[in-house]
């Protein structure tokens, strides 16, 4: 690989630009292809959009031999609502798993840099914060506050988004009450069923870190299965 290509690829990743590294296997020639590129040949543009959509690298047959296409999508995102104790290990495990983590909490005593070093903190009200973050199909959202004033507006926005995972902390009883409120707010049963509640895989987790592991495990299962 030529150093300028490596440097550009690292810049693209830092700036969260979607890009594919294309290598012609017969001679090792490489180039970066962007989904917006119009000047590339049709077969390459089509193959590039396929590897980006599947998020899986592949060898494809071109008119001039085999090419290896390695997609670099921007990282998956994890949005946590509530800068509570569980959010601390969950932000860390989420980052380790490769997610871009954002924590939303308008309560600045909770959402402080001391409690969340190196984590993106948003202290807007959850509905505003969610509008700005605009969750997409590569986003997981977990509400952790137990407080309907904070959780519910976030869940409204989450249910109107294509987020691949929505989880909400709380007991079966809390979740039933939450589902009833959402139904009253006009959400259909199928929509409400998108919410994982009680959140996380059932592994008998007790401590905040253990609960964070069970939540991250459930997010992973939802993503990969």
């Amino acid at each position: 690989m030529e150093a300028p290509i490596l440097q550009q690829l690292v810049r693209d990743r830092a700036e969260k630009r979607t890009v594919v590294l294309a290598t012609r296997l017969t001679n090792g020639i490489q180039k970066l292809v962007y989904p917006t590129d119009k000047q590339e040949e049709n077969w390459l543009i089509k193959a590039v959009s396929q590897v980006l959509a599947s998020d899986r690298a592949a060898v494809v047959e071109g008119p001039d031999g085999d090419w290896f296409l390695n997609p670099f999508n921007p990282p998956l995102r994890l949005i946590l609502v509530g800068a509570v104790h569980i959010a601390q290990p969950l932000a860390l495990i989420g980052s380790l798993t490769g997610y871009d983590v954002t924590v939303i909490d308008p309560r600045t005593s909770f959402a402080s840099a001391e409690r969340f070093p190196d984590v993106a903190l948003v202290t807007d009200w959850p509905d505003e914060a969610m509008a700005t973050l605009a969750p997409d199909a590569r986003t997981a959202i977990v509400t952790l506050t137990h407080d309907p004033k904070l959780d519910d507006p976030a869940l409204h926005a989450a249910l109107r988004s294509p987020a691949f995972y929505i989880g909400s902390l709380g007991s079966k009883k809390t979740h039933a009450a939450r589902a009833a409120r959402l139904a009253e707010a006009g959400f259909a049963e199928d929509d409400i069923a998108r919410i994982h509640g009680p959140v996380g895989l059932s592994i008998g987790a007790k401590s905040p870190a253990e609960i964070a592991i069970s939540i991250m495990a459930e997010i992973t299962e939802t993503l990969r299965r």
């Binding site: 490596l6 990743r13 860390l92 980052s95 380790l96 070093p117 190196d118 984590v119």
Partner: peptide, 14 residues
């Protein structure tokens, strides 16, 4: 945290 996360920063390390 960045030090902990270097396991996924292969190209960045390169």
């Amino acid at each position: 945290m960045s030090e902990t996360l270097n396991h996924d920063r292969v190209l960045e390390e390169a």
